[in-house]
Amino acid sequence: MEEIAEKFAAYLSHKMPQASALAVEGISRIHGGASRETYRLTARWQEGGKEVSRPLILRRDPVASLIETERDLEFNAYRAFHPTGVPVPEPLFLETDEKWLERSFFVMEQIEGCQAASPFSPDPYGELAPKIGPQFFTILGKIAAQDPGAIGLGESMEKPAPEECWKRELDYWEGEIDKDTLIAQPIAKGAIRWLRRNPPPPPKELRVVHGDYRTGNFLFNDAGEIKSILDWEMCHLGDPLEDLAWACDPLWAFENEEKPGGLLPRAEALKLWEEASGLTIDPKAFAWWEIFAMVKGLAIWISAGKEYQAGNNTDPVMALSSWYCTDVHNRLLSKRMQEIAEEEAA
């Protein structure tokens, strides 16, 4: 850990030539960031005769990851949303030269005095849930309300045709399953075939999709205020219902299908999202994206298992994701698909 601190101090000195006597203190790795190595630290330096102290977050590419993403995508999303009122940390530096820390990384503001809940706790927010819930779905609606071009993301991201959004995502995640699976997946493959036979109506407009908006991916304080939305590494342009369906997936609510995120009743959550986004939920499209969310989840857990089995990343959370999350999504998805199959056979 001290070696990383020293190397990172050298990097900051290079980026901030006006700073002198720069030191990195209190560096510790944060548990759970399975797609990037995440470190909390404080940088101290002298500048203009004054001592400056700044708590920072360092996100470094891993050797192998739960999901394969480009760090500049996440950095650009933080930069785009920071001025919009959507709470995100201030992004500071993006570095792709591997000479500094052996792998690419970026640096951002550390949001102090906050915590992220475990997505696998039966009651992650306790008595704060009624306060956090409305913010959670309102912020997601605000993300969906943004014009991607107006916040600088229109040019840097691939723009699928609205009627192609579903196919682009499904093709990608099916490809991940086919590439990484260690055992045949009849539940995922059956659901994918159904999704292809029953495509959703297209969104009226392309919007920014966070890609992993869920319990555990935001910071809140003791007063129940959401202070930061994190983990934008899967963000893309697409149908905003993709995000809403992912946020409502029962995996993030200890399998409670009627209380998304373990936060508030489903109908209330959807209404808050509609009010904040200015969009109307098409029930047929939303039902499609809910099934897709489970397929996407399975793809992520399957890939995590493959990386662990291959020895590329033996972080225990990779194995747990593959065991536990695959188990939950296989049960939820097979239940939904059996219901559909019985309707079709009747």
Partner: peptide, 21 residues
Amino acid sequence: ARKLGARIWGFLRQAAEKRKL
């Protein structure tokens, strides 16, 4: 074919439930 398809989904659901961790 649809009936057997539904029977297979029933099996998959039951198998997934039995594997619940």
